[in-house]
């Protein structure tokens, strides 16, 4: 035991505080993300089922909570099939690439005043920069699969992501202008008396809509629209390769909800309960809203999606940004 402590001290002294904290944080994340996704899938299935007046799975564990864990284990055991005419390298690397941005995003999210892996002064930018990689991976997966449905899905994805990244960044900018900071922590600390959702309701709604579109969630799930494209860009993927796409989708959703919480809903702030509880209450509320929308609305068509982005979202976001800047300057 004492030897272990000694080893730990040596490693700590050698690497320094930041690196050690970073490595441990990443290891915890590696365990946390898949388990959290398993829970989120269970949560979605339950929300969906109760919207549809049915109980969903009840057999494995209390209220079927272990069902998705079992599904996940089964998925790991599945054969990894590569289509004969696929572009082998791109096909192999696409699911790995999609997981990186989802993973990196977690590093800068402050779950509570003390619980964050690294407070980077451009945290918000970091998440956006990495989440742009997602579309690259989707394009690689869609192109390399050598399947027309996958290709259509991938092409849709690129257009959609480019269109919705603009209102997303513009709506975030109005918050950044108010705080003069890109650091997630400082933004939360600036929301001391009132949350920014009170000052920036338009930006909040724009942010929610654009993140839903960025994450390909319904009603903007054209990338994997199952009634049109079978399952879009990941039609040909099997086993854990498909699992990584699935994991990334849900992780991106958590990051989007966490960002909305941090930027607009005061992050960990709230009475009585500890910060982390408040943070997750807000995150889960936003995720619930996303599920609720998904299981209620039909999907919109591609041209309508693009029209909505370029003709409504971006002008409104720009206007909101200008008004924010002018009001801040005048006051």
């Amino acid at each position: 035991m004492s030897q272990l402590i000694q080893l730990w001290n040596t490693v700590y002294a050698f690497l320094g505080h930041d690196v050690t904290a970073g490595v441990i944080g990443l290891l915890i994340l590696l365990a946390f993300i898949p388990l959290h996704v398993v829970f989120l899938v269970w949560f979605e299935m339950k929300v969906c089922a109760h919207i549809q007046l049915r109980p969903a799975f009840m057999e494995v564990g209390p209220h079927g909570i272990l069902q998705n864990l079992a599904d996940g284990i089964k998925m790991i055991g599945k054969d990894l099939i590569t289509p004969k005419l696929a572009d082998k390298f791109l096909y192999f690397i696409a699911p790995i690439v999609i997981f990186i941005p989802a993973f990196v995003g977690y590093i800068v999210i402050p779950f509570s005043p003390n619980l964050l892996i690294k407070d980077i002064n451009v945290g918000v930018l970091l998440i956006f920069a990495f989440s742009s990689l997602t579309v690259l991976s989707v394009l690689m997966a869609g192109w390399s699969s050598n399947n027309k449905y996958s290709l259509i899905g991938a092409v849709r994805s690129v257009a959609q992501n480019v269109a919705y990244e603009l209102p997303l960044l513009l709506s975030t900018m109005s918050v950044v202008i108010m705080t003069n900071s890109f650091s997630m922590r400082e933004i939360i600390e600036a929301q001391s008396p009132v949350w920014f959702v009170v000052y920036q309701p338009v930006a909040f709604i724009l942010f929610l809509i654009s993140t839903t579109a960025e994450n390909n969630r319904a009603p903007f799930d054209l990338v994997e629209a199952e009634s049109e494209l079978v399952s879009g860009f990941h039609t040909e993927y099997t086993g854990m390769r498909f699992g990584l796409f699935f994991l990334a989708e849900y992780t991106n959703m958590v990051i989007a909800a966490s960002m909305a919480t941090a930027l607009f809903l005061g992050g960990w702030r709230g009475p009585f309960l500890p910060g982390i509880v408040w943070f997750f209450i807000k995150v889960y509320f936003l995720i619930f809203v996303v599920y609720w929308i998904r299981w209620t609305f039909p999907r919109i068509r591609f041209d309508q999606l693009m029209n909505f982005a370029w003709k409504v979202m971006i002008p409104v976001a720009l206007l909101n940004l200008i008004v924010t800047a002018v009001v801040l300057k005048v006051l």
């Binding site: 919207i51 549809q52 007046l53 049915r54 009634s227 299981w295 209620t296 609305f297 039909p298 999907r299």
Partner: peptide, 16 residues
């Protein structure tokens, strides 16, 4: 028809 447009929940109600 509605499910083809992407709304799955009405389909379940209809089956009920």
């Amino acid at each position: 028809f509605v499910m083809g447009l992407g709304a799955i929940t009405p389909f379940v109600y209809g089956w009920d």
